[in-house]
Write a protein that binds this DNA or RNA. Structure first.
Lengths: 205, 205
DNA sequence: ACCTGTGAAATCGTTCACAGCA
DNA sequence: TGCTGTGAACGATTTCACAGGT
């Protein structure tokens, strides 16, 4: 375990390993070798060992990794054992779909607020959780008050539609959130603390 | 212009350049230097010149690139001057949303078929274009008959939700489709000919 | 015997820096 | 002079290969 900078490529893969470990765990599989894990994603087994090696020595020589054990480690490493409070900026179709999306239900990400600059939308409550749509101008205040630590841009003036893998992105982001000062993002030019989810013209998905 | 393998990173950026050129063109701007273009995306100007350099010499020293000209070149390079016929596999919520999605309207991608293994869905017609839902078992036949050259997986058994940038991905894919034998994908582990859009559990977006 | 952990090598991608042309 | 095109330098990431535990 070295204290190098961790690249986003690595944290993305950590998230993928975690999903695989969850499946293995559910299937009752107790141990797994890097070689077997690698075959699931056609990755090189050395890459998996290297990725894990940045964070510690979790394996047993001659055996492999204990599934439950490694799963716990990665969950901690990615900061997924701590809750995250998410704001969605843009209460259009995509933002609304995200607010309704139950897929985060069993994760530690909770959508706690929406923001929009359309006065007609401000004050509305969206989805089963009745999440309030705030005026964007009140963002700073609401972010502080609601202790929001992740923002998802679901709308912005612009030309592009850009969608990212929400689960991997949020889990990867969680890693960097868990290390306020330490790990600067070494790959990619995006600011890891402000994950863009979509930029679109007028029409939304 | 060398005949090197083109990486997916490059074709992705080509798609981005194209979008920018469309905007510049609409704004009536005639020429652009790599430096100015680079500033739009905080990229290095050499990277843009290098990317373009894989495909030819499109610039004029001392001037830059002619917007209309470069736009035409990139459109051709990405194979976007030729139509693509898209099938969506999975007629669940996401697949239906994609079939309804008008965002491809002015592009050369046309959704011509949906597939599902749910007998209740087979035979239905989706969206304003009334795209027919076929039985997955007839996929091979329909693909041939409808001359489908791009498939989008909108559903699959699995655990993950994975979303990719549709526009950039399809445009990038188009490049590799345009070169049947030549350019193998050099980066990434996905098969460029089978672009995955989403894998989800039961519930869909 | 098997599989991890990790330096070293190889590969891949980006940026520099400058020759050369308009 | 200004900007392209590109070899060379650099930096980052992946893969090899093997020493070292169990």
């Amino acid at each position: 375990m070295k204290s190098e900078k961790i690249s986003e490529l690595t944290t993305n893969r950590m998230s993928i390993y975690l999903r695989c470990l969850n499946t293995l765990s559910a299937a009752g599989i107790k141990t797994i070798a890097s070689q077997e894990l690698a075959e699931q994603f056609n990755l090189n087994s050395a890459q998996i060992r290297k990725d894990l090696g940045y964070f510690g020595e979790f394996g047993v020589r001659g055996v492999g990794y204990f599934v439950a054990d490694l799963r716990n480690h990665i969950t901690k490493i990615l900061g997924l054992d701590k809750p995250h409070r998410v704001a969605i900026v843009g209460a259009g179709r995509l933002g609304t779909a995200l607010a309704n999306y139950q897929g985060f239900g069993n994760s530690n990400f909770t959508v706690v607020a929406l923001f929009d600059n359309d006065g007609a939308k401000v004050g509305q409550r969206i989805g089963p959780e009745e999440i309030l749509v705030h005026d964007v101008r009140r963002m700073e205040k609401v972010v502080r008050y609601e202790k929001i630590d992740v923002a998802v841009l679901a709308v912005r003036r612009g030309v592009k539609v850009k969608t990212v893998d929400l689960t991997t992105s949020l889990e990867s982001l969680s890693y960097f959130l868990a290390r306020p000062q330490v790990g600067a993002v070494t790959s990619g030019r995006r600011n890891a603390r402000f994950e863009e989810v979509a930029e679109q013209k007028e029409r939304e998905l």
